[in-house]
């Protein structure tokens, strides 16, 4: 962990567990298995997320976090990619948190510290952040302001997460 970013580490204190009750009120392990004739799914079309296209429909996303193959949980809690909201790399966009350095575009693999873009020397990109595209063993932090955004999402947009089904 690079020293300059150590004071910025935030702990989300958010834990997920497998659902024990499904949307119909029946007991569940929280894992469903779907047989499909499809041999692959494209992330372009998100066909895996719909029964009509060979995948499986989500459970009510207000009350459950659905994971198919690889869903980044940060976005569900209102975080942006750490390089910003622009669809193409740019130094002029933002991820709406101020304690992550301005970053040009995604990083991949295992960058070495410091990785400078967008005049963000001397410390460079916070590429070890979960909202970048580096390898699993290279990402290990949220920043404090990212944590604040996640907590705000849990308080408002996702306030029904984990609550019982209506009528139960």
């Amino acid at each position: 962990m690079p020293d300059p970013f150590k004071p910025l580490i935030g702990n989300p204190l958010i834990a997920f567990e497998l659902a024990t009750v499904d949307p119909n009120g029946d007991p569940t392990t929280g894992i469903t298995r779907t047989e499909t004739s499809k041999t692959s799914f494209s992330i372009d079309t998100e066909e895996m997320k719909f029964s009509a296209t060979g995948g499986i429909d989500a459970w009510d996303t207000r009350r459950y976090l659905n994971i198919w193959v690889c869903t980044m949980v940060g976005q569900y809690l209102n975080l942006s990619h750490i390089w910003g909201e622009s669809r193409v790399p740019s130094c002029s966009d933002s991820d709406f948190v101020t304690d992550t350095p301005n970053q040009y575009g995604p990083n991949g693999g295992k960058p070495t510290f410091p990785h400078v873009t967008c005049n963000n020397a001397p410390h460079g990109d916070m590429f070890m952040n979960y909202m970048d595209y580096v390898d699993d063993d290279t990402m290990f932090m949220f920043s404090k302001e990212q944590v604040a955004r996640m907590h705000a999402a849990l308080e408002f947009e996702r306030s029904q997460l984990g609550t019982p089904s209506p009528g139960m």
Binding site: I43, Q75, S80, H81, S86, R87
Partner: peptide, 9 residues
């Protein structure tokens, strides 16, 4: 591009 949800655009 890359959408905020990771999907290609």
């Amino acid at each position: 591009g890359i959408a905020p949800t990771d999907a290609p655009t």
